[in-house]
């Protein structure tokens, strides 16, 4: 494990938190101002009555928007742009959606079990038209359990960076380099958790989240393949090119 001074850790925390805040899509102040308005029943029904392919396309667009912010986040993480291009792509292909799921807890309301989507707060029933009820309910459960950890923005930023810099992704060319970055990020996360006087259990709870994220993402890939098998042309012509690059 690398030797890192406390000053270096503090610096890393600062850089990663700043990167997170600059690229988090919605600022805290914006989130507070956002009316916590849930979709009305008629609005929910109008989402539910959309054709399956239209709902998939809408969600692909929203996911892609969120992912573009994650790419910007990655670029600002110390050391990420020093990795070879192959590894930058590998890490983003595997980790960008995971970070979107992590960030989802910022726009999730546990009390009403709803997430900010398309202008208002949406419960799982809004996504019924996708035909992936089990995946949607797992995503909501994940967001709820992330929320229950009450992470600060600093902690969330470092955990997102830790997820993105996973050194065990397949096809990495300079695995050791990524490993070093991830270890440093983990030390910075531990440092912040300690400084914030969080209980010891938080880190192990976050480790469990890593495997939950992998499962969510592989299930997303499975659902996309099933959808593509039925609607190949819709994916080909109507889905955002970046989404196709990442998940195609």
């Amino acid at each position: 494990s690398p030797t890192v001074s406390l000053a270096e850790l503090d610096h890393l925390v600062q850089i990663i938190s700043k990167s997170h805040l600059e690229t988090c899509q919605y600022l805290r102040e914006e989130l507070q101002q956002m009316s916590r308005q849930n979709f009305q029943q008629d609005e929910v029904e109008s989402y539910q009555s959309k054709p399956r392919e239209a709902m998939w396309q809408l969600c692909a667009v929203k996911i892609t928007e969120a992912i573009q912010y994650v790419v910007e986040f990655a670029k600002r993480i110390d050391g990420f742009m020093d990795l070879c291009q192959n590894d930058q792509i590998v890490l983003l292909k595997a980790g960008s959606l995971e970070v979107v799921f992590v960030r989802m807890c910022r726009v999730f309301d546990s009390q009403s079990n709803s997430v900010y989507f398309d202008g208002k707060f949406a419960g799982p029933d809004v996504f019924k038209g996708l035909g992936c009820d089990d995946l949607i309910s797992s995503v909501f459960d994940f967001a709820k359990s992330m929320c229950s950890l009450h992470l600060t923005e600093d902690e969330l930023a470092l955990f997102s960076a830790f997820v993105l810099l996973s050194a065990d992704r397949s096809w990495l060319q300079e695995k050791l380099q990524v490993e070093k970055l991830q270890q440093k990020t983990q030390l910075a996360l531990q440092h912040v958790l300690q400084k914030n006087q969080r209980e010891h259990g938080v880190l192990s709870k976050l480790r469990c989240k890593v495997s939950a994220l992998r499962s969510l993402c592989s299930r997303h890939t499975e659902k996309l393949s099933a959808f593509r098998a039925v609607y190949p042309d819709i994916v080909q012509t109507h889905f955002p090119p970046l989404y196709k690059e990442l998940f195609g």
């Binding site: 573009q68 790419v71 910007e72 670029k75 600002r76 792509i89 292909k93 970046l242 690059e245 990442l246």
Partner: peptide, 16 residues
């Protein structure tokens, strides 16, 4: 590279 054209582009755009 062709396969990840947009990702490459996004990575190369300046972060300013």
């Amino acid at each position: 590279k062709e396969k990840h054209k947009i990702l490459h582009q996004l990575l190369q755009n300046s972060t300013s």
